[in-house]
Design a protein around this nucleic acid. Sequence first.
DNA 1: TGGATAGGATTAATCGATGAAGCGGATGCG
DNA 2: CGCATCCGCTTCATCGATTAATCCTATCCA
Lengths: 346, 346
Amino acid sequence: MSPAKRANRRVTLQDVADRVGITAAACSMALRDSDRISPTTKEQVRAVAAELGYVGSSAARALRRQRAGAVALIVPTTSKHVFGHSYFMHVLSGVTSVANDHDTQVLIATNADEARGLTAYERVMRSHSADGAILTSAAIEDETVDRLLASGLPLVLIGNFPQLAAAITVSVDDRTASREATEHLIVVHGRRRLLHLTGPLDHQTGVDRRDGFHDAVAAHGLEEEAVSLEGDFSEEAGRQLVEGRADTFDGIVAANDDMAFGALTALRERGRDVPGEVALIGFDDFGLSRVTTPAISTVAVPAEEMAAVATERLLELIDGRAAGWTRRRMDVTFRFRASCGCDQKL
Amino acid sequence: MSPAKRANRRVTLQDVADRVGITAAACSMALRDSDRISPTTKEQVRAVAAELGYVGSSAARALRRQRAGAVALIVPTTSKHVFGHSYFMHVLSGVTSVANDHDTQVLIATNADEARGLTAYERVMRSHSADGAILTSAAIEDETVDRLLASGLPLVLIGNFPQLAAAITVSVDDRTASREATEHLIVVHGRRRLLHLTGPLDHQTGVDRRDGFHDAVAAHGLEEEAVSLEGDFSEEAGRQLVEGRADTFDGIVAANDDMAFGALTALRERGRDVPGEVALIGFDDFGLSRVTTPAISTVAVPAEEMAAVATERLLELIDGRAAGWTRRRMDVTFRFRASCGCDQKL
DNA sequence: TGGATAGGATTAATCGATGAAGCGGATGCG
DNA sequence: CGCATCCGCTTCATCGATTAATCCTATCCA
């Protein structure tokens, strides 16, 4: 253990300076590799800093530079039940990996408590605990998003927000993807009586995926027999919505995999064969759909990459490089597995 | 929008003070509800603060108070592949909910890059970006844990660390749980030829679960036919370890659910019936095991509660309330489902 | 030899909040 | 009536790093 650690007092820049025999200011410049400091001195400062285990105070730097060196990942409480764990984990993974590469901290902000009328994440932003934020899975009508946007703080949204013209977003084309998934059931598997289990319709994702479904049924003249029922992305909702009408449809398009799994359970309980009697396709591919039996066909959303791209852009914004793309679309990948009848293994 | 927002300049305590006609210091005291300030003034200050949307600078406060108001959740990179997403998510969930209740930020620290010989999370701690940390899934020989511990910074570990006498830990009794799970296959389902798929043996969890397995087979005189093979908690390892010997055993105890699922896949490919020919039990119950077919019997680890408890304790430590428990044991819950033959539904 | 120049450091101010110590005026008490 | 007391606020120093402005001292050239 170094003396500094034993003393258990934080090593400050002044300590390093004293040891080298120069000013704290000079040390600061030396460590930032300023050309106003002689190479010899720089070397000494670096050596002493390493020896003492000097690590600058983030608070002091943040205060002086007016820059926290951190980004926040915002999670609206409302999405706690709505969006699953795995989605968030993928996002977190993408954010941290990029942030790490840029010496930036990641902090998690939720609005669990709305003390003093400010959501926790507004507080995070206003207190400058973070220099910017990634916001995901927000409801369409969430006015805190507007406030955040209006406050001018760097913000990148993951998802589609057509009503927010000024927002910088990273998204997938839910509508087109959902249409294609539906058409797959129609064209490849010959299904005619289709059911769609929607996500929550106060989320754009829910709306878009539903619209895509209707686009497909309309294009193939199947409106008569098509039905869409509102769910909330939960497995339970998927199960309940299908329970009473397991025999009515020969194809189900779920707005996400959890609901697809719920539907699968309900169908199984009713003795309906999947994919024989009912073809099923989900959305997301965040983990669940691959491991069920039958494995659920789905539309893979590149959550981690979206988060990484969003974070890159956010760091640009924070650095004042505002110019750049505003709306970025990522590609989805179709994974046709057993539940629609494509993968016949097992 | 308030003027402050339009001006897009941060609202400082001084601004509030000017508006009220008093000193910033008085404002500070007023907002912290000091009894040295008159009720009238307090009221005014609060009103103005709300009006201007004042939120204190976290950096300034942190600098002055020598307290960041944040805790770090540390994730060793080495565990990236080892521990799954879902486990971490449960932990994060537990940490954030408690931290939120205490007005504390949560930041995620990984050691993705070891710039300048310091892991990223050592840097986080030394820079006082966080006042303390929760560390989970560390390897037995991870010397950064020792350094962190030696540095005297508040730290709570999740998991068993028998070699670290000074550490404060929250854990489950992996060995006993694993023994009981194994005995379940022996006693309830009459299995005699048992295989254990271990976790990585440089993690205490891997060792303990393996030892529990051996305790059970020894207690029932089944050592002759029992085998344990080293895995790494991955589905792929589970599959590979079972692939060559699917016919050799009638009971498999996997150190976690991912490996159990891998084993299940391998058995299925070989046409071995689960649970008929081979009874299978996993460990963790972080999501996967419930949704497979057959559903995998498992030992549920209360990850979220452990994280919550650890965070509560951490906040105590940070507040200087060092006295309290040092090693906390949480209970596991057995979930006997279809893969061991208990739950006959489908 | 003297004045200009540049390299290499120092001084001092600043970021925003906070807490100890100080201070003026009104009240209390003997 | 005069001194002590206390309320309510102000003053000032401080937390640690950073940066603009300044200053000192060789060195160089006319």
